[in-house]
Design a protein around this nucleic acid. Structure first.
Lengths: 165, 165
DNA sequence: TAAATATCGGACTCTTTCAGTCCTATATGC
DNA sequence: GCATATAGGACTGAAAGAGTCCGATATTTA
């Protein structure tokens, strides 16, 4: 149905939970499960992934737990999605060349790659700080109107720049 | 893995196939399967959905087949995705209120709704004509830079964190 | 009218992914 | 040493995905 997995959903909720209460820099899985009203084993599983991928710092043993590995405003949503969900690609062939067996016949391969990249950039422009600060709505509306306005321009001259990452 | 289903992928390829060859306004499932190198039963299944949803016009009987229901430049990608994939919602709670059982506790519900909407708008800004005309890349790059510029508002000034492993 | 050709509307199967649980090993604080 | 955490798996049931197939209906052509 073109939606994120629950794992990713939970992961971002948990990150937001950690970011929203700076008085408790480190919280363990049980505490986070309680405050987010999510099942403990699932929370534990997600936190492990986030720690392994470097978005959280884990502390073992008694008095242990998890804390953010960086500042919320330097943690883009696209990064959380990437580590929990895998690389963003709207279709298989958007993952790169030689992924699609119908190379020659497919006319929409390159557009898909571009579109995937745009979605990723949109998600890269929103950080954890935006989520907990409620700043998303305003910037989103401006963003949207600008996007539509630009894409509705029928003819324009192509700037020969291609941005790769 | 946060990607579209093959059904949707096929559907857009088929729409593009129909849009790219205006000399044959109507093509049947077998012809479209041949030109797109996709299995016939699957192509047939997808075309049925697109016709039922009003994106294609179907003609039964001998000499029958499918044709576009409108002009390619008035067929946004978001619409094709919606009819084949269902309503776009990155998470369950983005589908609307009363979808999430953790209403009071969840701090990121509204941001998710906004983010979903932005992704949808991004996809609404690209039409079938863009796909077959290869116009996507140019407008996409402009769009992206504008989105990022806008979102980099007041206090959030930082280079995007790019974490490689 | 009869035959050939297409779509229409399902049901159906097989496979893969998802969501969630559970267990053992290891590290840490007191 | 013991209680408490995370680390890293394996494991299961449920659900969605991908693809096939069949009978019914509509249309063209001979």
């Amino acid at each position: 149905m073109f939606k994120l997995s629950k794992t990713t959903d939970y992961g971002i909720v948990l990150m937001a939970e950690l970011a929203s209460d700076s008085s408790r820099a480190t919280q363990n899985a049980r505490e986070l499960a309680a405050s987010s009203e999510l099942p403990v084993p699932m929370v534990s599983k997600v936190l492990k992934v986030l720690a392994k991928e470097g978005l959280l710092i884990s502390q073992r043993g008694s008095k242990g737990g998890y804390s953010l590995a960086g500042e919320p405003d330097s943690m883009p949503v696209s990064e959380m999605i990437r580590v929990l969900e895998g690389p963003l690609a709207l279709t298989d062939c958007a993952l790169g060349p030689a992924r699609c067996e119908h190379e020659s016949g497919c006319a929409v391969r390159e557009p898909w790659q571009q579109i995937s990249r745009v979605v990723e950039q949109a998600l890269a422009g929103i950080t954890l700080a935006d989520l907990v600060g409620g700043r998303v709505e305003r910037s989103m509306n401006e963003m949207t109107s600008n996007m539509l306005q630009i894409n509705r321009s029928p003819e324009a001259n192509r700037p020969p720049q291609s941005e790769q990452r």
